[in-house]
Simulated scan of single mutants.
Amino acid sequence: MNYLHGSNKHAIEWGNATQVTEFILLGLSLFPNVSVSFLLIVVIYVFTAAGNVLILTLVFSDQRLHSPMYFFLCNLSILDICFISTTAPKMLHGYLKGGKTISVPGCLTQSYSFFLLGVANFLLLAVMSFDRYIAICYPLHYSGIMHQKQCIKLIVVVWAGAFFSILDLSIKIMRLPFCSSLVNHFFCDVIPLLRNSCISTADIHVQEVITSSIILLTSLFVTLASYLNIVRTILKIQSAEGRYKTFSTCSSHAFVVSLAYGSSIFTYIKPSQGQVKDYNKKVSLLTTMIVPLLNPYIYTLRNEKVKAILKEKLKGKICGK
């Protein structure tokens, strides 16, 4: 309640209600000891950034990785760094004394950035699935179809699609007046923001659900269609060694896709009565921090080509010393 009283001095009158000018993020207590929670998020953040920077460094520094697959992987690494950076710094700040408050413009910016990057992530995964489909099902035409200009066009489509698909919804949310300062989350997610509005947001909530569902299902459809054709092509290969080599070219991406869509499924699963507390926040922690953390290590640990180049560079540095 002290937070609520403290936020009144940062409020303005709106009609008969008090419109807040800053929010208080209630956060998420991972452990009873705040220091342990703080340290865990720091470790996740550092390892996520380090893993993705490693991928970017390897791809940019080695000519053998200058192909469409690794071009898209670089974009995924950049997305993951940006994605976790929208939530982790503010979450860490929230563990500090007086770090729970965030201005309304800052909160809306965080919410928009999170939504934009999340949509772009799923669209990019669909594009990467299409790339693997062309590479495995039409190997002779691959270089002609997935040339440099085409790859750049697909990335532009990803960002343009993400931007325009959420533009109208984001404008409506940014125009809302807010009368409650408490946000029961560790970042400014859309649903908690809608609950804090001074006016009814039922239509905006429906639009948000429809928009998210269309994006997710469209991306999922492209991904499943691509992998169904990939599996069908692999099964036609006579030798077991040939099937293994072919599947290994997309196994890392398949794991990343499974992780991304698998974590999203939890958003739509209703917990039992005893698990309701902090359920949405725990699911959000999985999608905003754990998935970006695991992605680069899946590619370095499961991708034979990346592993070979990494070992070669490490060996070269050791021998150089």
Score class of each variant (00 low, 15 high):
Ile171Pro: 00
Pro177Asp: 13
Ile134Lys: 13
Lys153Met: 13
Met91Tyr: 13
Val158Lys: 01
Gly99His: 05
Ile134Cys: 09
Ile155Lys: 07
Lys172Trp: 13
Arg132Asp: 00
Leu96Pro: 03
Phe122Gln: 07
Phe115Trp: 14
Ile136Thr: 13
Gln148Thr: 10
Leu117Glu: 04
Leu124Met: 12
Ser181Arg: 14
Val104Ser: 00
Leu123Ile: 14
Ala162Glu: 06
Thr86Glu: 03
Tyr133Asp: 04
Met91Thr: 15
Gln150Glu: 08
Leu169Glu: 15
Ser129Asn: 07
Ser113Val: 07
Thr87Met: 09
Tyr133Trp: 14
Thr101Ile: 06
Ile166Asn: 01
Pro105Arg: 10
Ala88Lys: 08
Val158Arg: 01
Gly99Lys: 01
Met91Leu: 15
Cys137Phe: 01
Gly144Thr: 07
Asp168Gln: 13
Cys137Val: 01
Met91Gly: 04
Gly99Ile: 03
Thr109His: 11
Leu125Val: 15
Phe114Asn: 05
Thr87Gly: 08
Ile155Cys: 13
Thr101Ala: 10
Pro177Glu: 14
Ile173Cys: 03
Ser129Met: 08
Lys100Trp: 04
Ala126Met: 11
Ile134Thr: 12
Leu116His: 15
Asp131Val: 12
Phe122Cys: 04
Tyr112Pro: 00
Tyr95His: 11
Ala135Cys: 06
Phe114Val: 08
Ile171Lys: 15
Gln148Trp: 12
Ile155Pro: 00
Ser111Phe: 00
Thr101Met: 02
Ala88Thr: 13
Ser103Thr: 15
Met174Gly: 10
Asp168Leu: 10
Phe130His: 06
Leu92Gln: 01
Phe83Pro: 01
Leu169Val: 05
Ser180Arg: 14
Ile136Glu: 04
Gly118Asn: 09
Gly106Ala: 08
Leu169Ile: 10
Ile84Asp: 05
His93Tyr: 14
Ala162Leu: 02
Leu96Met: 11
Tyr112Val: 04
Ile81Asp: 08
Asp131Lys: 07
Leu176Ser: 09
Ala126Trp: 06
Ile81Leu: 11
Ile134Arg: 12
Gln148Ile: 07
Leu140Asn: 12
Lys153Val: 10
Gly98Lys: 07
Cys82Tyr: 07
Cys82Ile: 02
Ile145His: 09
Ile102His: 02
Lys100Ile: 09
Asp168Ile: 12
Val158Ala: 04
Tyr142Gln: 11
Cys82Pro: 04
Pro139Thr: 05
Gly161Cys: 01
Gln110Tyr: 04
Leu140Arg: 13
Met91Trp: 12
Gly99Trp: 01
Ser170Met: 13
Gly94Glu: 08
Lys153Thr: 12
Cys137Asp: 00
Phe178Met: 08
Ser181Gln: 14
Ser180Gly: 13
Ala120Leu: 14
Gly98Ile: 08
Val157Asn: 11
Cys179Ala: 14
Ser111His: 00
Gly161Tyr: 03
Lys90Asp: 02
Ala88Trp: 05
Met91Asp: 01
Ala88Pro: 03
Leu169Tyr: 13
Ser129Asp: 09
Phe115Ala: 01
Cys82Asn: 10
Ile134Asn: 05
Leu117Thr: 09
Thr87Ile: 10
His147Ser: 03
Asp131Leu: 09
Ser181Gly: 13
Pro139Val: 04
Val127Pro: 01
Thr101Trp: 11
Leu154Ser: 12
